[in-house]
């Protein structure tokens, strides 16, 4: 059973090709890193996966639901953490999560129970009454991940979620999301940092709008460190 299936996806901004015949599959409960340098097409792929854009060709399935044919079912199964923070900084953590819960039709005691559960899971239950503006970068990211898990999605998409965080917060969040995959959530983690990818992770390398490599990280890197293998693949200088 696949968590995410992308088949022959292409997308252009006018004459500039952002994605060219991109295909890959991620099994349910797997952690897959989408590694690519800046401008590789990662954010465009995320915009297509979240249906902010619609690709003229290709097909996307989320937890078995065709995104084009059944967008509501597919989006209901998906949690997303965007690269740019999407918290309302003037609202408290609970108000931010309540707003998102309502956008998924959750209300009342069920909503409150879910909010308490995800905040506890992310270790930020004590921040629930604080305004998002007062949180540090790491806690803001945790809040966004907690929010993305509120509706118990089968698939979690994270677009460069560690941008702007210090090393400790990066490690913390990377480890936590790996744990979510172990619990059965399919994770697609976009990054340009090879050190966020574990050897046993699935890895899709995206470069200049195409999939350069698709397999397990340890297979793609071979005997080299992944960072070096990635630089060799993309033709960048070490």
């Amino acid at each position: 059973m696949t968590g995410i299936r992308v088949a022959h996806l292409s997308y252009s901004y006018g004459a500039k090709t952002a994605l060219n015949d991109v295909s890959f599959e991620i099994a349910r409960g797997a952690f897959c890193a989408l590694l690519g340098p800046n401008g590789a097409g990662k954010s465009t792929l995320f915009n297509l996966l979240t249906r902010l854009f619609v690709a003229p060709t290709g097909r996307i399935e989320i937890a078995g639901h065709d995104l084009q044919a059944n967008p509501r079912e597919a989006l209901a199964k998906m949690g997303t953490v965007f690269q740019q923070t999407t918290l309302d900084l003037d609202l408290t953590v609970r108000q931010n999560l309540s707003y998102f819960a309502a956008l998924h039709g959750l209300s009342g005691r069920d909503r409150d129970r879910r909010i308490d559960a995800v905040l506890d899971r992310l270790g930020i239950a004590d921040r629930v009454r604080e305004k998002a503006r007062t949180l540090n970068g790491g806690h803001r990211r945790r809040t966004e991940i907690a929010r993305a898990l509120l509706h118990d999605p089968a698939v979690l998409l994270l677009d460069e979620p560690t941008v702007g965080l210090d090393a400790a917060a990066r490690r913390d969040i990377t480890d936590h999301v790996h744990g979510l995959a172990s619990d059965g959530t399919t994770v697609l983690w976009a990054t340009h940092l090879a050190d966020e990818v574990a050897p046993d992770d699935r890895l899709v390398v995206l470069h200049q709008a195409k999939v350069l490599a698709d397999g397990y990280a340890k297979e793609i890197s071979g005997l080299k460190p992944l960072q070096q293998a990635f630089l060799d693949l993309t033709g960048a200088d070490a």
Partner: peptide, 18 residues
């Protein structure tokens, strides 16, 4: 520009309703 529109538009409810 701040990105919060993405949060709204990725809700499973129809976009016209949102």
């Amino acid at each position: 520009e701040m990105g919060s529109m993405k949060l709204l538009l990725t809700s499973p409810f129809p976009r016209w309703w949102l």
